[in-house]
């Protein structure tokens, strides 16, 4: 909700809860407003561009790709990405296997690499159906997979977080890492889309 100065809207019940909780915690010395503001800014900097950089690096550096697939967390650390408690598993799309990620229990997501999850990732419909009818769900995102393609669904139920390493499109020879990263969308790294070179 956006408020203009001089045109305040009343708080919703839950906004009122947020302000109240936060003020109580600040009064008790448990958090400071500065800490909250700092974390808000840190989270704002975590966007799918971070994940796209990891993918583009893997596409251009086979040694890095091998290390990333062996241990996603170490791969991120190697690129200087702050991972905190992230335990990352990178799953690779191939001509035979397409990977897609869901969390049926809540909304586990590689936030350090992709930011806050999109609304639909947390929706009942996505969470209920992706484990059972992945092909139908993907087609609702406009991704039609051929019948020979095997789908591997990852239900992110506990401590690991998943990033899909999409296939590099064929027509991208000679592209810079930066240009490659520009075609790697958030949805490609969740597995509900594939990168397109045009």
């Amino acid at each position: 909700m956006k408020e203009e100065s001089g045109n305040y809207q009343p708080y919703s019940y839950f906004q009122l809860m947020e302000v109240s909780l936060r003020e109580l915690l600040v009064e008790k010395g448990i958090v400071t407003d500065a800490q909250v503001a700092e974390e808000v800014e840190a989270m704002r900097k975590r966007t799918p561009a971070v994940g796209a950089g990891v993918v583009a690096k893997a596409w251009t550096d086979p040694g890095f790709k091998a290390r990333l697939l062996a241990d996603g967390t170490l791969g991120c650390i190697e690129l200087g990405i702050e991972v905190a408690a992230l335990k990352l598993v990178v799953v690779e799309n191939t001509p035979d296997v397409h990977n897609v990620v869901v969390c049926t229990l809540c909304s586990c997501y590689p936030r350090m690499l992709l930011g806050i999850p999109p609304e639909w990732y947390k929706s009942r419909n996505y969470r209920s159906r992706t484990v059972r009818e992945p092909r139908e769900v993907l087609s609702e995102f406009g991704l039609q997979l051929n019948e020979q393609m095997k789908i591997r669904v990852h239900d992110s139920t506990a401590d690991m977080r998943y990033l899909v390493l999409p296939m590099r499109p064929a027509e991208t020879d000679g592209w810079s890492e930066e240009r490659l990263a520009s075609i790697v969308t958030r949805d490609c790294m969740i597995g509900v889309a594939v990168p397109k070179s045009h």
Binding site: M1, V40, W120
Partner: peptide
């Protein structure tokens, strides 16, 4: 599945930070 997006408000970002 409706591919809905939502631009998070500042108060929502503060909940996340908390």
């Amino acid at each position: 599945v409706e591919p809905t997006e939502h631009d998070y408000g500042e108060w929502e970002r503060r909940v996340d930070a908390l």
